[in-house]
Write a protein that binds this DNA or RNA. Structure first.
Length: 474
RNA sequence: GCCCCUAUGGUCUAGCGGUUAGGACGCAGCCCUUUCAAGGCUAAAACCCGGGUUCGAGUCCCGGUAGGGGCACCA
């Protein structure tokens, strides 16, 4: 039985790297018809943010990643919040001390050498060899110790990782890491091992930054006589300039992207592709398709750069794949008050294919509510064989035609204007250009002349056309 | 300082000893067209460097270089 877990610490938001870790852990479990677990790693008392739990729940729900066991979903392996498991860690730490695989350390933080000091020779802690009497003595002085892991002086620790292959590190490179802090809480280094074992996690999926600590965790598994899990360490996600993603530098979190107008499903789709590919040339995936296609042995080793351009494209593909009704629903919140009175359904129909990101909508439609200032140079367009003169003539001729037009539906308008073009000997494009331009005041618009006219209605259409003509006559 | 990892176009990637080095985003051009999109077609663009191994290396080995990560009473 595959059992994977996502184990975030409650920092208040879900960044892209976390989202991908959660997603891969979910996909690996679901692919194997296994169980996906949410565990909260809140052992750092200084770092807990209120409401942070909600951010995790909301983020996962938004992403469509559902867990089978978690803080609010007992699966018999709880509690799923590490701060509620304090007694468990204490008990296991004492077992290690009794076995000689861990020891009390009474050093103060300041006593520890800095990296870069001559720590290669003697990186072992002075408390490593304290006699029972000395330990007792310290206790009698009321000093609160930490518990450190006793790493073997000799030998090499090796393990297999599904992404990075065989990794091997000499034990002498490993630190006697702290297992239990002086406040009695475990460190991540200890809690993750105890919890992963107790929760029967079969596959550990986490960031690459844990790769070189994994031998220490395996030593712990061995000390307990536990079997260790399979490992899947994930390369980092970086920016296109090679720097790392950071909220501080203004890089968007998952929630930010959603607020910017990206579909959660598209973000999930894109993030899945950051470091993994299906082995064929598909790029657009639903969650179900991802589950079907995912293969942990096809995860790449090198870090991947997050590309807004590619996200936009994938988002556009997801938007275009929506049914018209579904698109209308997601687009609606972006229309705002300025578009009151317009046929929003018709607008949705017009812009769906042209929308890469919902956040583009307000700007794309701004001209509807208010005609922008524009230069008459816009009436000149080579491709439409449109000049200032032709535009003036066409506008002059077309205004009376449209004044008589009763049916302002797109189809009817198009018939009328096409007929006019034919009779006047103008090309359709040449006829439409000045109309489209006068109606939008922009070099490009989400719809052609008749589509805009139909949207704007007869009165406003005529008003804008006359305005355009005035500009040309001036 | 010590240790671990990585390295194919600008970006994401396929490749797993013999390929015209494939695809996608982006970029440029063309077609389509009621402007723009969308769609179709075309183009430019890559195996970090140096040694080996081999008949033959992007692919295997070693060494550089560059980048990332770790060496916390943070996770």
């Amino acid at each position: 039985m595959f059992r994977t877990r996502f184990a975030p610490s409650p920092t208040g938001y879900m960044h892209i790297g976390n989202l991908r870790t959660a997603l891969y852990a979910y996909l690996i479990a679901k692919k194997a018809k296994g169980v996906f677990i949410l565990r909260i790693e809140d052992t750092d008392q200084k770092r807990n943010v209120s409401d942070a739990l909600d951010a995790i729940y909301n983020g996962l729900a938004l992403a469509g990643i559902t867990y089978d066991e978690g803080p609010d979903k007992d699966g018999g392996h709880g509690p799923y919040v590490q701060s509620q498991r304090k007694a468990i860690y204490g008990q296991y730490a004492h077992q290690l001390i009794d076995q000689g695989d861990a020891y009390y350390c009474f050093c103060q933080k300041e006593d520890r050498p800095e990296p870069g000091d001559e720590r290669d020779e003697e990186r072992r802690d002075p408390c490593r060899n304290l006699s029972p009497a000395e330990v007792q003595d310290y206790f009698d002085q009321g000093i609160q110790p930490v518990v450190r892991q006793r790493i073997p002086l000799e030998g090499t620790s090796s393990f297999f990782d599904h992404v990075y292959g065989d990794i091997s590190i000499e034990n002498k490179q490993l630190d006697d890491q702290v297992l239990l802090k002086s406040d009695g809480f475990p460190t991540y280094n200890f809690a993750n091992v105890v919890d992963d074992h107790l929760m029967a996690i079969s596959h550990v999926i986490r960031g690459q930054e844990y790769l070189s600590s994994t031998p220490k965790y395996n030593l712990l598994y061995e000390a307990f006589g536990w079997q260790y899990p399979e490992y899947i360490h994930l390369p980092h996600i970086i920016k296109e300039d090679g720097k790392k993603l950071s909220k501080r530098a203004g890089d968007p979190t998952f929630e930010d992207l959603v607020n910017m107008g990206f579909l959660p499903a598209a973000i999930v789709n894109y993030v899945a592709l950051l470091g993994w590919n299906p082995g064929d040339e598909r790029e657009i995936f639903s969650m179900e398709e991802l589950i079907e296609a995912f293969d942990m042995d096809r995860i790449s080793k090198s870090s991947a750069a997050f590309s807004m351009d590619k996200l936009r494209w994938i988002n556009g593909e997801h938007i275009r794949a929506l049914s018209p009704d579904a698109f209308h629903e997601v687009a609606l919140p972006w229309y705002g008050d300025a578009l009151r009175g317009f046929d929003l359904q018709q607008i949705s129909q017009l812009i769906q294919i042209r929308t890469d990101c919902l956040g583009d909508i307000p700007e794309m439609l701004a001209f509807l509510a208010e005609l922008p200032e524009y230069d008459i140079a816009l009436f000149e367009n080579q491709k439409s064989k449109s000049s200032l003169e032709s535009s003036k003539a066409i506008l002059e001729a077309v205004i009376p035609v449209l004044e008589k037009q009763e049916d302002f539906s797109n189809a009817a308008l198009f018939e009328t204007l096409k007929l006019y073009a034919k009779e006047s000997g103008n090309k359709v494009g040449t006829t439409m250009w000045p109309i489209r331009t006068a109606l939008s005041g922009a070099p490009a618009s989400p719809g052609g002349a008749t589509e805009l006219a139909s949207l704007l209605g007869k009165e406003e259409t005529l008003r804008r056309l006359r305005l355009g003509l005035e500009k040309l006559l001036a």
